Simulated scan of single mutants.
Amino acid sequence: MTIHKEGYKILLVLLVILTAINIIIYYYAPNNITFQYAFLTFSVLFYFLILQFFRSPRRKVTLDERLVIAPADGKVVVIEEVVETEYFNDKRRQISIFMSPVNVHINRNPVEGVVKYFKYHAGKYLVAWHPKSSTENERTTIVVKAKNEVEILMRQIAGALAKRIVWYVKEGQEVSQGEEFGFIKFGSRVDVFLPLTAKVRVNIGDKTVGGITVIAELVEDTADDSIII
């Protein structure tokens, strides 16, 4: 199992702390064998629980300019028409993917293009399914202009457990489909905002695999020979 770089420091510090506690218990409670083994078992299980948060599986992404792929592993919890007020100021199709603690927490670019807008927002840590989490929680907003000139907005949102959002992109940067653009430690969710003409390929409750699952499809507009999603 490959470990993501975001987990190196946390895992090392946790290993040192758990090792130190077990040594202290061994020396100060030498006769309490049951407690020693119980805490050692807890330490091992807890460490592997945290370890799996930072796993980084290899993904073979099939690039396709016509498709929008899932930016995260998780479950589709929202598909609805909304008014996006930070960047577009008009109606968009929102698809939200909830990342539980057992999901891979890497975030991947749904399309290839250029980052046209980026902003980090400090905020609260409401549960990810709270209606106001997308506007009040700690979050980032990233807009990528795809090769077909369509702009797609992604929003990383921290939740009650996730306290740290990491991003690897900046305005003007070229990004590839399926490439990592960020990481949310310990879960939460990612929103994707598409034009209303997007042909959605997922349903509420569907499980997604970041970089693999197709969530929307590009549609050719034969009326004006342009390509939209």
Rank of each mutant, 00 (worst) to 15 (best):
T140A: 07
L67F: 09
I17Q: 00
V76T: 10
V102M: 04
D90Q: 13
V219M: 06
G159M: 01
V44M: 06
G210Y: 10
E6S: 11
E180D: 12
I157E: 03
P57E: 01
G211Q: 07
V68A: 04
A146M: 05
I142C: 13
V143M: 07
I3K: 00
E174D: 08
L196K: 04
P30M: 00
E136Y: 14
F35T: 03
I25Q: 07
A216K: 05
R55I: 07
P30E: 00
R58C: 03
T197K: 15
V13R: 09
K5I: 02
E217N: 05
I95W: 04
G172I: 06
E84T: 07
V200E: 03
V102Y: 01
T135C: 13
E149R: 13
L126R: 08
S188N: 09
V202K: 02
I25V: 15
F48Y: 10
D191R: 10
I184K: 08
V115R: 12
Q177V: 12
A160T: 14
A223G: 15
G74R: 01
E179R: 00
R108N: 09
Y87L: 14
I10R: 05
T208V: 09
L63H: 11
T34E: 01
L40N: 05
K163M: 03
E138D: 08
L45G: 11
V143T: 05
A29C: 06
Y117S: 02
L161W: 10
I227C: 11
V214H: 11
I165T: 10
K163I: 05
V82Q: 10
P71T: 09
K124V: 07
N89E: 14
R66I: 02
F35I: 07
L40D: 00
I3L: 07
V78R: 14
S100P: 00
T208G: 07
L67P: 06
F88W: 07
K60H: 13
I79G: 03
I79S: 03
A223L: 15
R93P: 09
G159T: 03
V144S: 15
S134F: 15
V143A: 09
A158I: 13
R189F: 09
K147Q: 06
F98K: 01
T140S: 15
R66L: 12
Q173V: 02
L40H: 03
L18Q: 01
R108Y: 09
N203T: 04
V76D: 09
E65N: 13
I69L: 10
A128K: 05
Q36C: 00
L15I: 04
I21F: 06
D224Y: 13
I212M: 08
Y125E: 01
S133E: 04
K185E: 14
P30T: 00
A70S: 15
T135N: 15
A223C: 12
A146W: 05
K185I: 12
P30Q: 00
V68G: 04
E151T: 01
W167S: 06
L161I: 15
V114S: 01
A29S: 13
E86Y: 08
M154A: 12
I165E: 03
V111M: 02
I24A: 10
K145Y: 02
K9F: 14
F193P: 03
A29R: 14
T135A: 14
R189C: 12
L12I: 12
I229T: 08
G7V: 08
K145G: 10
V202Q: 05
Q177F: 06
I50V: 11
M1Q: 07
Q156N: 06
F54I: 09
I95E: 05
T135Q: 15
R58A: 11
